[in-house]
Design a protein around this nucleic acid. Sequence first.
DNA 1: GCGACAG
DNA 2: ATCTTGTCGC
Length: 240
Amino acid sequence: MSGGFHHLWKVSPAQAISIQKQIGSRIIERPLRRPIRLVAGVDAAIAPAKDKIVAAVVLLQLQDPWLGEKAPVPGQGFTVLEQQHAWADLDFPYIPGLLSFREAPVVLRALQKLPRRPDLVILDAQGKAHPRRAGLASHVGVLSGLPCVGCAKSRLTGQHRQPGLARGSSTDLLDKDGQVIGRVLRTRRAVKCLYVSVGHLVDLDQASRIVLALACRYRLPEPTRLAHLLAAKLRLKPPA
DNA sequence: GCGACAG
DNA sequence: ATCTTGTCGC
């Protein structure tokens, strides 16, 4: 499980930005090569003492493999196959734009504990919709070599029109030069939109449709929603 | 200089 | 991210 690129984590903000530029240039945006059957959702939470972080990952098996061509199937059935997690000491501070240096290390360790390789990983963060095209989803994707999708609850960068109120409505998220860096997607009627972007090894169209298909019951796609619930429970019982 | 700013 | 109950609107 390696994307072939490595770097130090104990770095200064300036060094982190330099590394992100390399991550951003290594993103591969393309259609998935295999049908999606195993989807992993990842999320992190901080312990009450604020000194440790836990990354939770939930692996779901879709009843019907997603081929990427068809339209989203409302009510997509699934089964929870695995639940894993990893703890880490919190060293890097939260700095807008540098989130991956705070969460990627522990997220990668949690993903490595999965007994099976997921066909796709969905993260609660931006992917390409980042100042240097290196959001957490892209960083994790490039370092792990796994197809990743960024699915953030709010905007980090970029401009966009407001999508319609209907479920499935969406608009392009554009950078200052007018380039499409993501999709603003309404997953449920009249709820706050999600910011979907390519992490690595997928294209924006598939990423958006997959997120919409998996968010048939709640605003967040099931994988990420379940990972969030698991992380919220784990944070209360940090290791010594 | 001022405002914006994933989790 | 985290602190937190009930409540208004689709």
